[in-house]
Simulated assay, not measured.
Amino acid sequence: MKKYIILAVLPLLLSCKKDKTTTTAATETTAQKKDSVSVVEPDFKLDKNSVFGVFQLTHKDIAICIPVQFGDQDDPLSKKYENFLVKDSIPWMYGREMKDYKYYDTLSVGPLYYNKRFEDTFKKEMKDSYFVYGTKSFQNCTIKRVVFQSTECGNDYIAYILNVDKNIVGNPLIASEKEIPLKYSNNYSEINRSIKKSAAKGSTENNYGFGNYNPIVYGNYKNLYFTYYDDFKWYDKKAGSNCQFPERAIFELDKGKVKLLWSSEMDLLGLPCL
């Protein structure tokens, strides 16, 4: 009787062993497939027309700043700006009444003006929101006010003020219509030296400013390196800034060669008057 019981149970034991072996093999195969999958880096293609310099203009205001290129017929925004001010006779330039213009700020590096018609006209030229990148991180921000600077020297710019939180992004640097898969790192000392050596001769700061041009890499996407030159003090007249042409730039490094792809800088000196 015992022999029959053993014979009856034996096929069940063999079946269980086979199932266990099959399960183990399947698990190992799954693990191998999982290990062989590589992380695909998000794709990003630089569009120079969708990236803008972001600067702190006052103690409370951070903005996308677009310098006006007077007389440049190939720059539609500058042409529109010039036509707008000419049509309004630029009242503060000729001692006329300000009419419906208001001073937005007069305590910082340069006077900022606000005009409702101006805001309505130029807000249409931009998106409602942007990805704003700083020295620490980034966040999605919206435009909350449009103002501008206008001077006798012609170093005018349009400022799209953003609701940026410096606690999140750090010091503000650039804004982009598209999200940039930017890798933040502190290990750029060699890259910094290469970029500085390549870009120093063409630097406006070195040629016309204090000569302290020292671009700092704060992040990269593959072989694109994002830099800034700024001491983040100049918006405060009492801070003693040594920066007259704060800059944001993107460089490409290819086989040891450095190429400037995009840049945006502020003219705090008033070059057209020199």
Results as ranks from 00 to 15, higher is better:
Asp156Val: 13
Val164Gly: 08
Phe148Met: 02
Phe122Gln: 07
Asn155Pro: 02
Ile158Arg: 02
Pro172Phe: 04
Ile180Ala: 05
Asn140Gln: 10
Met126Thr: 14
Asn163Asp: 15
Phe148Gln: 00
Thr151Cys: 03
Tyr157Glu: 05
Lys144Ala: 06
Gly154Phe: 04
Asn171Val: 12
Lys136Ser: 09
Lys136Thr: 11
Val169Cys: 10
Glu152Ile: 13
Leu162Ala: 12
Ile161Gln: 03
Lys127Leu: 15
Asn167Thr: 10
Ile143Pro: 00
Tyr157Ala: 07
Cys141Thr: 06
Met126Asn: 14
Pro181Phe: 03
Gln149Ala: 12
Ala175Leu: 01
Glu179Thr: 02
Phe131Asn: 10
Glu152Ser: 08
Ser176Gln: 02
Asn140His: 10
Glu125Pro: 12
Leu162Asp: 05
Glu152Asp: 12
Phe122Gly: 09
Tyr133Trp: 03
Phe138Lys: 02
Thr151Ile: 10
Lys136Cys: 11
Pro172Arg: 01
Ile174Ala: 05
Tyr130Asn: 05
Asn171Leu: 09
Ser150Asn: 06
Asp120Lys: 12
Arg145Met: 08
Gln149Leu: 10
Cys153Phe: 01
Lys144Val: 12
Ile180Gly: 05
Gln149His: 06
Ile158Val: 14
Asn155Ser: 13
Cys141Pro: 01
Ser137Trp: 00
Glu152Pro: 00
Glu177Tyr: 00
Ile174Pro: 00
Phe131Asp: 07
Pro172Asn: 06
Phe131Met: 13
Gly170Ala: 07
Gln139Met: 13
Val147Gln: 01
Ser129Cys: 14
Asp120Ser: 14
Ile180Ser: 04
Asn140Arg: 10
Tyr133Ser: 06
Leu162Val: 10
Pro172Ile: 01
Val169Asp: 05
Ser137His: 05
Lys123Cys: 14
Tyr130Ser: 13
Lys144Glu: 11
Phe131Ile: 11
Asp128Ser: 15
Asp165Phe: 09
Gln149Asn: 07
Gly170Val: 08
Ala159Pro: 02
Phe122Arg: 06
Lys136Met: 14
Asp165Glu: 12
Gln149Pro: 00
Ile158Asn: 04
Phe131Gln: 09
Lys178Phe: 09
Gly170Glu: 06
